[in-house]
Amino acid sequence: MALEKEEAKVVIVDNLTKKLKTKSKFYLKDFYAFFPGEKPRAVKNIVNALVKDEVLEYWSSGSTTMIGLKGMGKQANAEGEGEE
């Protein structure tokens, strides 16, 4: 069954919001667990589409990428980089 973006969005936002008290960034593999039985590639495509829609955002150390709800966790302005 194809994964519907809008339905997947609800599941992802719901799951990430529940976990916000403990962490704001997640591995891509954490998202697979929200959709048992779905192919990792299908989940990956949905997650990347939701970043494009500005629901989610990437965090990168350079070697690893993590994903969280947009605006959550430490943002650029908290690092002293504000709007010009």
Binding site: V51, Y58, S60, S61, G62, T65, G73, E79
Partner: peptide, 15 residues
């Protein structure tokens, strides 16, 4: 690391 990048890309920029 950090939350930096260009729109639509999840790589190529390292905060």
């Amino acid at each position: 690391g950090g939350i930096v990048g260009v729109f639509g890309y999840g790589g190529g920029i390292i905060g």
